[in-house]
């Protein structure tokens, strides 16, 4: 009926859903590392909440990828956990920004600002996907993302415009991660096929709005948008920083120690 299914293979959609799941699981993992280590209890709870939201998004994307995989392979035993636990570092396709270490509270805040504002624009577009499941996931995730954006903005203002120490830490964090933000707006061949089919978001179109909004918040927080022109990318091709291997080792070891076990 639709031309999209003819041009695009099911595998493309599986890969796309899996990489969106990878982004969510990896940042959710990093946020969950804050639990019991936050500056005060209310933040332990709030960071746990945001981590749970991302974990929820990962599960929706992975569950969809699993469903399509089962349809494609004529199986019924592929689950969300196959995607989270049984793929290696080179198979994960999350953006590098998500996997960078937890860092201090400023580092986590700066990263979250960039990611949350990105997700706001990304999900707004994904709602229009011709793939009904992806569009439905976007609707749900967008509601939570609205709250994440507000939180990240508030914290950026507090830290940027707080004390000289907090200001310095925020600026340092922004400088340290900025080069990883560019790949959020890259589209590779897989995504281009899916963009053409109306399934994926054309990320190249999100950059102007993202930069405008992020710049406004950074400047209101009396901080400076970094102007260094360094660019690191490769996450979507499985070319990761050294941080991801350790994250996956920790996340996967129990599951992999007991092949086939139920939990």
């Amino acid at each position: 009926m639709t031309s999209s299914t003819e041009i695009v293979s099911k595998q493309d959609t599986i890969d796309y859903a899996a990489r969106l799941g990878d982004d969510a699981i990896v940042i959710g993992h990093r946020l969950s590392e804050w639990v019991s280590k936050a500056p005060f209890v209310e933040e332990d709870i709030a960071l746990g909440n945001v981590a749970l939201d991302f974990l929820g998004h990962a599960r929706m994307y992975y569950t969809y990828a699993a469903k399509l995989s089962n349809e494609q392979n004529g199986t019924n035993d592929i689950t969300e956990d196959n995607f989270a636990y049984l793929r290696d570092e080179r198979q994960f396709q999350n953006h590098l920004l998500h996997e960078l270490h937890k860092g201090d509270f400023a580092y986590s805040t700066a990263r979250q600002l960039l990611i949350d504002v990105y997700n706001k624009y990304f999900l707004e577009q994904l709602k229009n996907s011709s793939d009904e499941t992806l569009a439905a996931i976007a609707v749900k995730a967008a509601k939570e993302t609205k709250y994440h954006c507000r939180r990240s903005k508030d914290w950026t203002l507090r830290l940027g415009d707080g004390t000289s120490e907090s200001h310095e830490r925020m600026q340092l964090a922004l400088n340290d991660i900025w080069g990883y933000s560019h790949e959020l707006f890259e589209v590779d061949e897989l995504e281009q096929r899916l963009v053409d089919a109306g399934i994926a978001v054309d990320c190249t179109l999100l950059k102007a709005d993202w930069l405008k909004e992020v710049t406004a918040i950074i400047e209101e927080a009396t901080l400076t948008v970094p102007d260094q022109d360094w660019v690191v990318s490769g996450g979507r091709q499985g070319y990761h920083t050294e941080h991801l291997g350790h994250l996956l080792t920790e996340m996967q070891f129990v599951h992999r120690s007991h092949p086939g076990a139920k939990w």
């Binding site: 590392e33 599960r59 939990w263």
Partner: peptide
Amino acid sequence: ITRAPSLRRKTVLLSKVQDEGG
């Protein structure tokens, strides 16, 4: 939390620890 052996168990454990903070 970071080592929970399935995504479902991870979700439940994270919620639980959060409740404790509450």
